[in-house]
Design a protein around this nucleic acid. Structure first.
Lengths: 109, 109
DNA sequence: TGCCACTATTGCGCATTGCACAGTACTGTG
DNA sequence: CACAGTACTGTGCAATGCGCAATAGTGGCA
């Protein structure tokens, strides 16, 4: 089954979680998400999400030069972002519990 | 936070889970999902999902007259639907575990 | 020198899908 | 007859993940 639709609305949360505690840039966020198990996440999705969160005022942003390639645009959580992260995490946990409840009945008629 | 995006790709699974073990019709599926905790699920979403799953060959369908209102269009799982249900459930469980893993690091970064 | 791979970001347009809203229609109550 | 509850259909919109192309810097290799 295609898991891409599962990311809808959750990618924001995943990106915020990755940025929590340590600033990072798009290319690296993609790498970290894939290592975490989100194998199929598209790079354009992550860049888009970062831009959207920044535009929404949840992230700070600054550019850093790199010796190994082009410049990197770092993003970090601000207060809005941290607040959004905890709210989203709570919403996700609750939602996941509801789904688990629905699935528990499967096969039990 | 708006949880509507969280449903993306998961509503199929939720509907399949509700139909597992007992045939049902749209209006009742909506009611059951809301009782299960998916308070905000829209009726048009459920009807659309049922139609889509039927069109995809995962559901059987038959009409039953009702004494309390208009006819009811019942849906039930066939082999394709049951297979889709178990596959989707597995995908969901795995995905949810990945997300939980990402969130576990929050605050510990 | 020229070609290629890896790194890194942006922008365009598309596909999927949940939802609001309107319309149709049947039953029962006042 | 108006209205509420039940029940389904269709239209069009909004959100968002993704494929793909373009741009651009660094370094290796023939």
């Amino acid at each position: 089954m295609d898991s891409s639709q599962l990311l809808k609305g959750v990618l924001d949360l995943a990106v915020l979680a990755v940025l929590d505690g340590q600033d990072s840039y798009g290319y690296d966020v993609v790498r970290r998400l894939r290592e975490a198990g989100l194998d199929d996440v598209g790079d354009a999705s992550v860049y888009g999400t970062l831009r959207r969160l920044f535009k929404a005022g949840a992230l700070t942003s600054y550019v850093v030069a790199s010796d190994e390639g082009p410049h990197r645009k770092y993003y970090g959580l601000n207060d809005v972002g941290r607040s959004l992260l905890s709210d989203s995490a709570r919403t996700w946990t609750s939602f996941a519990a509801t789904m688990d409840g629905l699935l528990k009945e499967v096969g039990a008629g």
